[in-house]
Design a protein around this nucleic acid. Structure first.
Length: 434
RNA sequence: GUCCGGAUAGUGUAGUGGCCUAGCAUGGAGCCCUGUCGAGGCUCCGCCCCGGGUUCGAAUCCCGGUCCGGGCGCCA
């Protein structure tokens, strides 16, 4: 079958005056002035004005066009006419208008930007919500951001991998998992590719990354949590935590820089001025951050994690992206490498945006013996980690890595309040559909 | 897990005991209009989450339920 259109809205220019084109899209708006009738057709790239002057248009075409229903899908074949009075300097004078799919009415929400809709209404009819320019902008930017991530990691010599999402046991303990039935056994949705990307270090892949779904069964209900999120994970051999922090900050910098170039129109439509964070990011040790939190009146003892309020206070004090480094070993996962000379501290870091945590990472323990001990010290049963520990018995290089929340990266970049706004079909405490 | 808040036309809201036969905007139906671009004008259509209670009188107060939103904890 031939493609049904010859041009997208973005392909047509006033210079094409006189050309015959076939365009396709949704009816965005109609304006009937009596003797002249304007139809605004929308495709992914923009809007086109279809103009019909009553006296100059076939009466049958004119009447049927006036009876169209908004958001119906049309193809229009017509002549491009240069016209200074038209929105983009041109309009299309139609010869034929075909309705490919008639819309129901009324619509589940306004999509022209006149009346707001609640996030819940929007998500219930996400397919309509995504027709709204500003919603689409966010996802175009998300696409470009992830493309920049892939390009960057590709250039740094990383291999893309895909690890299992259905697993037999918890990765790190702590967070709640979604249990599922796997034939007649219990299994879980993976909370992180952590164990598998580390196994790939033993396999000699040297540098790997994965962009994929992670699942957390926490019953949180906040603007920055999802039960299904997208994680950007890397793991790299013969590197320490400082090396992968360098990769991470350069990656974030690159994403901002690339998006500001690739997505200038979308950013403008959203009214966002993107400031590319400066390199290098500040390094703030856990101990220094603790002092800031204490001086701001937050009662935290050494060895506690920072609560949301303290985290925000520290973020306000710093005011830009920063690394929170050298965490107490005891509050980090069992695979986190302690400093050899001061083992109560670990070679760990979180990447922070003033609003929230974006990523966390560390140098990993590569000694089989030490890892075994740490698993036990965390109250976990090493038997459940056989498949993982085995990879450390036959030549595991020193390695480090991190996991970065894709949604959080995008939402902080775009000043989006609600994390659901950067996910097509978010999964949260209440929402399992669509 | 815990604490707080909310539910009014398709959508977004106003209304906190009688002036509500529920206002406004958007939308839908129809009419007028030859340059609209959040078009404009006129007419019409469409809503108080469910159940119980208090009261002469409940959208409004109370109780229960359902659904939804958010803070904290946990985390990315």
């Amino acid at each position: 079958m031939d493609i049904m259109r010859t041009h997208y809205a973005s392909d047509i220019t006033p210079g094409m005056d006189g050309d015959t084109v076939t365009v396709a899209g949704w009816i965005h708006e109609m304006r009937d002035l009596g003797g002249i009738y304007f139809l605004v057709l929308r495709d992914r790239g923009g809007f086109m004005q279809i103009t019909m002057v009553k006296k100059k248009t076939d009466p049958e075409l004119f009447d049927s066009a006036r009876r169209l229903i908004r958001e119906s899908v049309l193809t229009v074949t017509g002549t491009v006419k240069r016209e200074d009075k038209a929105p983009r300097g041109y309009e299309i004078i139609p010869q034929t208008v075909s309705v490919l799919s008639e819309s129901d009415s009324p619509l589940p929400m306004d999509i022209t930007g006149k009346v707001d809709a609640d996030i819940d209404t929007r998500l219930d009819s996400r397919f309509i919500d995504l027709r709204r320019r500003k919603t689409l902008d966010v996802f175009e930017i998300r696409h470009h951001a992830l493309k920049a991530v892939r390009n960057f990691l590709e250039n740094e010599g990383f291999i893309e991998i895909h690890t299992p999402k259905v697993v037999a046991a918890a990765t790190e303990g702590g967070t709640a998992l979604f249990p599922i039935t796997y034939f007649n056994r219990e299994a879980f949705l993976n909370q992180s590719p952590q164990l598998y990307k580390q196994i790939m270090m033993s396999a000699g892949f040297d540098r790997v990354y994965e962009i994929g779904a992670i699942f957390r069964a926490e019953e949180h209900d906040t603007l920055r949590h999802l039960n299904e999120a997208t994680s950007i994970d890397i793991e790299a051999s013969f590197m320490d935590h400082l090396d992968v922090m360098g990769i991470l900050e350069r990656l974030v910098h690159e994403v901002y820089a690339q998006v500001s170039v690739d997505c200038a129109p979308q950013l403008e439509e959203l009214g966002i001025e993107l400031s590319v964070p400066k390199l290098p990011f500040k390094r703030v040790s856990y101990d220094d951050a603790l002092e800031i939190a204490l001086s701001e009146g937050h009662a935290i003892e050494w060895g506690d994690d920072f609560g949301t309020a303290a985290e925000r206070a520290i973020g306000n004090a710093i005011g830009e992206h920063y690394f929170l480094t050298d965490w107490p070993t005891e509050i980090k996962p069992y695979y986190t490498h302690p400093y050899d000379d001061k083992p109560v501290y670990s070679k760990s870091f979180d990447l922070m945006h003033p609003r929230m945590e974006l990523a966390s990472g560390s140098q990993r323990i590569h000694s089989h013996k030490l890892l075994h001990e740490m698993i036990e010290a965390h109250g976990l049963n090493p038997d459940g980690f056989d498949f993982y520990l085995k990879a450390f018995q036959y030549g595991m290089p020193p390695h480090a890595g991190w996991g970065l929340g894709a949604e959080r990266l995008v939402m902080t970049m775009l000043h989006v309040e609600n994390i659901r706004d950067v996910v097509l079909f978010p999964r949260d405490r209440k929402r399992l559909s669509p």
